[in-house]
Design a protein around this nucleic acid. Structure first.
Lengths: 136, 136
DNA sequence: TTTAACTGTAATATTTTTTGTTACAATTAA
DNA sequence: TTAATTGTAACAAAAAATATTACAGTTAAA
């Protein structure tokens, strides 16, 4: 995970939580993050599919939270946004003729899985509402 | 962290732990991981600077552990290998004129720091020796 | 009913990161 | 003296991430 997707998603969700009920446009959100609006729109679609937000097309359209910020855990945002494994990629073709190469990926997977579970549990304790409270 | 550095470093260290005392060449290690030997040598240098391994130049040279595998925690390997933040990059220039943009990176940093600490503590409980025991 | 402000989406380009390659000096054992 | 090796630099290629352009479709309101 060497991208900005988690930061971007949290930024979007925090903005929406900060202005509850208001329909915010992707251009406004993009201006706050200072990235391209199309990237925001793509992430909004992911957040919408996850059930966190709802959108309205046309003039005066935009997005807003689909449920209370206190009902959304940071772990849920993390879940929809993470792509690879938390501790990085595995090597693709370790040598099966070697004791270590043969079993390395299976054993790494175990470790990666445990680590991811740990993070998910930790982030589950934190709600979007908690996080949004940190802003003026 | 969307690279193979952690997987590569663990693979290297597991191999060395699996053949204690033996000087393994970077070519042999590269053949086990199935990656380019130069990448292995670069990672070996990092592991050497961290004090985990020692190397011998010249014919019959190679690398071996500088201390017992039971004295090396997985968290230490994670520490030397991680580059960015565990939950990804922050956006570079959030808008300081926005309540959220102004403080987002500081608040993300807090969250990232807590998360990283959690992982470090978890991986500290696991030694290289434990991990190496999983291999035939 | 026309216009302007939006979302949704595709296609493509650019930049950044990661991985691989080639080359060779320096070292060591035999 | 030769062969095997580490250490290191410079560069190339591939993959991933981010940005850009374009436009069809929707909606509110003048």
């Amino acid at each position: 995970m060497n991208n900005t997707r988690f930061a971007t998603a949290i930024h979007i969700m925090t903005l929406l939580a900060h202005y509850p009920g208001e329909w915010l446009s992707s251009d406004l959100i993009a201006a706050s993050i200072n990235i391209n609006p199309v990237i925001v729109r793509k992430e909004l679609i992911v957040l919408k599919e996850a059930g966190f937000i709802e959108s309205k097309m046309g003039k005066d359209g935009g997005c807003r939270l689909a449920k209370s910020a206190s009902e959304i855990a940071i772990s849920e945002i993390y879940d929809v946004v993470k792509n690879g494994e938390i501790l990085g990629k595995k090597n693709q073709n370790p040598n099966p003729k070697c004791d270590v190469g043969r079993d390395i990926n299976q054993n790494l997977q175990l470790l990666f899985g445990e680590t991811d579970l740990l993070i998910t549990r930790f982030l589950k304790q934190k709600s979007l509402a908690d996080f949004a409270l940190l802003f003026a």
